[in-house]
Nucleic acid binder design. Structure first.
Lengths: 345, 345
DNA sequence: CACGCCGTATGAAACATTTCAACGATCGTT
DNA sequence: AACGATCGTTGAAATGTTTCATACGGCGTG
């Protein structure tokens, strides 16, 4: 602070009249140093404005104090809620959380993973572009714990934390069927996204089990899971002549559902009377839509928290840790977008 | 990779039959090493699965490769858009971005800043809980560039990037007045948040300048800038007898506006016929609301990008860098929530 | 009184990299 | 043939911590 250079332990030691090691002890095992010298050292630190150099600490100690989360889509609030859950767990373990965003691009994901390896982070949580990503296996083999979030890891090579997307699709469509709908649109895509595939799969399963004709479950593909794509699907839907038009739609996530809702209302359809809508994720804005959105709730924060706990377990006792893939159970939250006689929120 | 330990430059050097320094050169100034040995070293790296240890690099080189953004409210998409802008600029400069979230709590902010100092990040972008934060001055004095985002720094001690919130409040209310409204609610709070203070201030200014009676600009305070608080304000608003009820509301941000919109529609008011609504920020969900929301647009990404550029400038030539506080000009985006005869989106 | 023990403090080694002065070899020039 | 210059490579020093074996001094015990 005095002469430009940031002070080091050495400066503190000199100023407090003790040795290097003692200063380190004050920071890392205060109980072994006598109260009087401890106090002297602490005063010196404060005076000099000493700030521990984390790089040096990490280099020597070999252990980093950060977790990382590589998220799939920064514009989807769902992932931020997951991140929030992770952060809570990280905070409890006194770790920092590094948040990256692949935005669905495998190349961005790769450069982020690369950097995280160089940083020697203590563990990596990731919602991968492609859950078979060979990088991940490689990273895990190197001894860095990896847990997959919101997807089930393949072959039990990692821990993963997810909700049962197939089940989610089932309860969504079952709910619509219970409301008497017999012609339903399922909207989502691209099918390269595993979550989409499984949610739609669940929808088809229950539809078949209910004995409804396959042709009355109409697939409206989208190019992405965004509000804009939801609107575009809404246009197509509203364009169908009324007598053949589905009376309900199940969207693969809430962003799509919100876009669809906006578009169809704009086109003059009444929701839910003429078109019932179910989304997926139950993000905060689902409840806040002008016609509050029925949605399949994922325990978003809980997902993140559980994932963080798994990664920490693996990090702290790598020996007798065994991978697990807990599946959370999604839950339907019925709101005005599907239920005609709803009480106000 | 072979025997557990991750390989170091030393291992690579031995395996390639060159010296330590040469390996380093291959990584940092490939042009000085002859193609043949370079290729040999690179092959050795690949074979061993070498991953450079960033801590050691940083310790020796003295320079870190990361920026950090401490955001104010992780549940507000606005800040994520800002972060996205920062990330883009960081990517161009080949830096990583560390994102933290203070959630409006000064104590969380402080622990994050502390950690960032220990990491010796190259620069800190922050939307502070309190822009006078003495920590920030201290950090800046230590030589770590700090730029304040979405607030104007006090006393020119830092760079800052913000929009003119007062102006934003003015154009919002001016727009309402142009639509013929003469009794308007302004909703927002707490006033400890600078952005809120200034937006409301702008509203009052223009109201007075237009010669409208102060009592007809009704202040509805809220405890936070959230959807839930928006709903609660909506309840209060809807509870006012129709003849005394404001015909329009200006909300200090979009989350409030969305909550207000939902609540008042639920209570049976027609928007915009019986109640016009203007928000602030123009987050993506504003356009996607069932009644698309008129809002004061901030150049969200641009804000982040500009901030990142300032911090980088200060980091790269600290000597003849001079602080600046660019103010962006907000822009009204009129949508259906204020304009009766709107075309569909 | 000798001994061992306990609570503290010490100093050197180690961590993985970058940097830099120095060195040897090759080659063109005089 | 001697001399510089150029090019590529080397080895050692330095970065700021933590860790660990060791030293020291005082005290209770046998």
């Amino acid at each position: 602070m005095v002469n430009g250079r940031t002070p080091s332990v050495k400066d503190v030691a000199r100023s407090a009249g003790v040795s290097l090691g003692t200063v380190s002890n004050v920071m890392n095992r205060p109980e072994v140093v006598s109260p009087s010298t401890r106090e002297r050292v602490e005063r010196a630190m404060a005076e000099l404005g000493f700030v521990r150099n984390e790089s040096a600490r990490q280099l020597r100690a070999g252990t980093s104090r950060t977790l990382a989360y590589v998220m799939l889509d920064g514009s989807n609030p769902f992932f931020h809620d997951v991140a929030q859950g992770i952060e809570l767990a990280a905070e409890e373990a006194d770790l920092s959380l590094f948040i990256c965003n692949s935005n669905g691009r495998a190349d961005r994901e790769e450069v982020h993973l690369d950097r995280l390896m160089q940083q020697r982070v203590q563990g990596i949580l990731i919602t991968p572009v492609n859950p078979e990503a060979p990088h991940l296996a490689e990273i895990s083999r190197r001894g860095i714990p990896v847990v997959i979030v919101d997807r089930v890891g393949v072959g039990g090579a990692f821990c993963s934390v997810a909700v049962d997307d197939v089940l989610g699709g089932r309860i969504a469509v079952e709910h619509l069927a219970e409301q008497g709908h017999t012609r339903v649109a399922v909207v989502g895509g691209p099918e390269s996204i595993g979550q989409v595939r499984e949610r739609l799969e669940g929808a088809r399963q229950i539809w078949a089990e209910l004995g409804l004709p396959p042709d009355d479950l109409i697939y409206l593909p989208t190019a992405a899971l965004t509000v804009a794509e939801g609107r575009s699907a809404g246009e197509r839907l509203a364009g169908i002549p009324a007598r053949r038009r589905p009376t309900a739609a199940f969207c693969a996530n809430d962003l799509l559902a919100l876009g669809l809702l906006q578009q169809t209302i704009g086109a003059g359809l009444r929701v839910p009377e003429e078109l019932a809508i179910v989304g997926f994720d139950d993000i905060e804005f689902a409840a806040a839509a002008a016609v509050p959105l029925t949605s399949v709730r994922q325990p978003r924060q809980e997902l993140g928290r559980a994932a963080a706990q798994l990664v920490l377990d693996e990090a702290t006792n790598p020996d007798h840790h065994h991978h697990q893939q807990p599946l959370f159970v999604p839950e339907l939250v019925a709101r005005a977008s599907t239920v005609v006689r709803s009480r106000a929120y």
